[in-house]
């Protein structure tokens, strides 16, 4: 019996250490979202500032956001600093359900310049949300030499 209790004590000691180690300071640290981002930091009402402060990004839904359909939105990008002097060459949009740790499989949004190259206005279609709830649209902007990102939260309602 004494031997058994020794094993039991050792086991729970090990489990307790393991649990403590999971929350130790070597692990991930809780940080605030991208510091300069958010609509409050922008000059354009409702726009989101990118992480490096290069652009303001305004998102307007054309259809949606809804679950289970291909949603579409218009993205208006406005240079804000000298950092963004070259015209944008590429924009990628990724829907991501951060609290669940997944996107929408390999359904990729399609990004097309809406007016003419360099205008900063894009139409994003094929935005698919596999479920309702809190999502993020992760937008990456590249001007050929540098890139910047912005994360725009989207609440997808239940029908």
């Amino acid at each position: 019996m004494g031997r058994g209790f020794f094993f039991l004590a050792a086991l729970f000691f090990a489990l307790a250490n393991l649990t403590a180690a999971c929350g130790a300071s070597d692990g991930p640290k809780k940080t605030s979202p991208q510091a300069p981002s958010g609509p409050d930091a922008s000059k354009i009402p409702g726009a989101w500032l990118t992480a490096n402060g290069s652009y303001e990004v305004l998102l307007e839904w054309e259809s949606g956001p809804q679950t289970g359909i291909n949603n579409a939105a218009k993205i208006n990008t406005t240079p804000r600093s000298d950092f963004a002097t070259l015209p944008l060459q590429k924009i990628t949009v990724t829907p991501w359900m951060t609290v669940h740790g997944h996107g929408s499989g390999n359904v990729q949004p399609i990004v097309e310049p809406l007016l003419f190259l360099g205008s900063g206005v894009y139409r994003v279609s094929n935005i698919f949300f596999v479920m309702s709830g809190p999502w993020d649209l992760k937008i990456s902007l590249t001007d050929g030499t540098t890139s910047d990102t912005v994360v725009i939260p989207v609440e997808v309602p239940s029908a």
């Binding site: 679950t67 289970g68 609290v99 698919f128 949300f129 596999v130 479920m131 309702s132 709830g133 809190p134 239940s158 029908a159």
Partner: peptide, 14 residues
């Protein structure tokens, strides 16, 4: 039935 961070039931296409 999938649920969200607040415990509400989520509509899903899965």
């Amino acid at each position: 039935e999938s649920t969200g961070p607040d415990g509400s039931t989520l509509q899903t296409a899965g």
